[in-house]
Design a protein around this nucleic acid. Structure first.
Lengths: 348, 348
DNA sequence: CTGAAAGCGCTTACAG
DNA sequence: CTGAAAGCGCTTACAG
């Protein structure tokens, strides 16, 4: 079934006594428009099939300047959010006959730049990017080159591009409002570094929105950035600080699943009980939250929808570029949902 | 930084007034061996740099018949075991200047065959495969074509190929022995479908080994295959059956992390308590186990080492093939470790 | 209805 | 020390 015999267009043309041109046309479905007789078309198709002909992708790519491959860059494919996202992207692109190249940037600006170069060098037809960069130089280059790409998950306020995101601010607002509606006033927010990333910024804004809306004073002391390299220890320190200051919040909002995991560990190890001693709600839903004791209330992102939208927009852009029309920009903002479980205490 | 200007060898040769041959040689580090003067070499290098020359991969691939890309097929990249494996593979191949194409087969034989064809068609230089297939036809084809590949995680007893696996049988034996040493006699084993997969077979063997070793009768009734499509319900049914038969085991051994998740849910929803009502140990360690109440004892696989070994063997094979020597076969079997937590009750 | 030819951008004998 | 030329396998004007 898997043959490697390298049969080429020329082989087919030769055996059939026709030209490569004809074979190429037929195999690319351009038989009719070029008026190749049905009979000839059939003969070509059949032989190609029986010889198990597979066009050489390099030759094709070289000639046509396209690879039928798209690139996806995320910070870490082993983060469950991104692995599920990648899976959805994989499914979506493959339905359209594209292949996918998945890369992890590790939140390293240098690595992301390298990856971007590599993908362009590999001549991918487009890129889906969840960027770790603060500056927009790299995406501006892409834009200038008229290279099709869409930004997902993380975007730039001051830069116009194709984007598919979730309404992080509203999602966060709803989450914190849920906490407030349970009677809490001392609510802390933990974000993960690098703090410039739009998801973190927006979720923190949403947190502040909620407090403002309910006339709760916003306190810097309750907003902490946690270094992603050492979440557990950083979070533990924060709790210890709060405790020794006698300023322990009654609830915390965490903006990312890894952060949540670190918090759950730290809270447990400090002998604190959820939600009795401290309430918690997290952004991103993972298996763990459903099964934790108590189950953790969280904000769930429509991962599949993010992926599908991004792919759709990207493929549209690729098509547009092929017709050498100029690229348009599409923005898609999806809503999150809050899954209420048992990690928030109802205060009197 | 990212230029798309498509500068070619010819451009460099032209501006420098030398031949493409020379430029190509220099850029491929063959300047010295072809006796190109240091001076010329420098001029070429500098210009290439300043023009930001990037060789066209299609042209290169077409000419040389290699892509510098390797393929990885796993059942599902969103399964944490595989996403971590993929991440390690990505790191390992990129250190050697290779790119990676990750694909999910979804345990579908048809899909896996398509993926394999696709990767070969894309002319990847080698494949790392965790196969879902029962038959070995597909890997035999690869072998016959002298196509470099290595089987990981899942292998075939009756088929000789490069393999990197974990000692599933011993890992399972140790896990079950741990249960036995805590005084249990009624121990069940749950495996996931498709049950023909070597990991499942071997882990079940290990389970039986442990029972035999301790002279505990092996009972078919305590060995169940769970359909992966509907784990939660299937597991619930099994527990209900055991209960109504008054045959509830005191401990279960589950052979996969997804299965474990389903079990934890089912056990919780049936109002059973771990480890008081039932003890459990799982194969594969995931974040959840560490944080669950109680923390779940599990068998941990050396994921990074699996990845690194597989990549090393694969790249060796690719090199060997390039020198048109015949491929050798390497087998690597890594040991697992058991992480003891609190999910097994000490019986009197 | 069909074919000869050019050309995509490389690398590699071969020749001097 | 260096270059002209062939060829990898395709697609696409162009010609008839």
């Amino acid at each position: 079934m898997i043959k490697n015999k390298k049969v080429s267009l020329a082989d087919i043309a030769m055996t059939l006594g026709v030209s490569k041109t004809l074979v190429s046309m037929v195999l690319n479905g351009k038989g009719d428009e070029n008026g190749i007789s049905k009979k000839t078309q059939e003969r070509v198709m059949e032989l190609a099939e029986s010889m198990n002909y597979k066009p050489n992708q390099f030759a094709r790519g070289l000639r046509m300047g396209r690879s039928n491959t798209i690139g996806l860059i995320v910070s870490d494919i082993s983060n469950p959010f991104y692995s599920r996202l990648a899976r959805s992207v994989e499914d979506a692109v493959s339905e359209s006959g594209y292949n996918l190249m998945i890369c992890s940037s590790d939140e390293s600006e240098e690595k992301e730049m390298k990856l971007l170069e590599m993908l362009i060098n590999k001549q991918v037809d487009g890129i889906i990017l969840s960027s770790t960069l603060d500056s927009t130089d790299h995406v501006e280059s892409l834009q200038n080159e008229n290279f099709p790409f869409v930004l997902i998950d993380r975007i730039y306020n001051d830069f116009e591009a194709n984007t598919v995101v979730v309404d992080n601010r509203t999602g966060a607002l709803e989450a914190v409002e849920f906490i407030i509606n349970n009677g809490h006033k001392k609510i802390a927010a933990l974000v993960i570094s690098p703090a410039h990333i739009s998801t973190q910024v927006d979720r923190l804004e949403g947190y502040k929105d909620a407090l403002s809306k309910h006339s709760i004073p916003i306190n810097q002391y309750y907003q902490k950035v946690v270094k992603r390299e050492d979440i557990y220890n950083a979070v533990s320190q924060i709790f210890i600080e709060w405790k020794s200051d006698h300023m322990m919040p009654t609830a915390i909002f965490v903006t990312n699943n890894q952060l949540a995991i670190g918090c759950l560990e730290a809270i447990r190890d400090l002998g604190l009980s959820i939600p009795k001693d401290i309430s918690i709600v997290s952004f991103d839903d993972i298996d763990l939250f459903k099964l934790y004791s108590p189950p953790i209330t969280s904000v769930i992102q429509p991962i599949n929808s993010i992926a599908r939208n991004a792919v759709e927009i990207l493929l549209d852009n690729i098509k547009i570029k092929d017709n050498s029309e100029s690229l348009i920009k599409t923005h898609k903002c999806l809503q999150t949902n809050i899954v209420v479980r048992n990690s928030v205490l109802k205060l009197a």
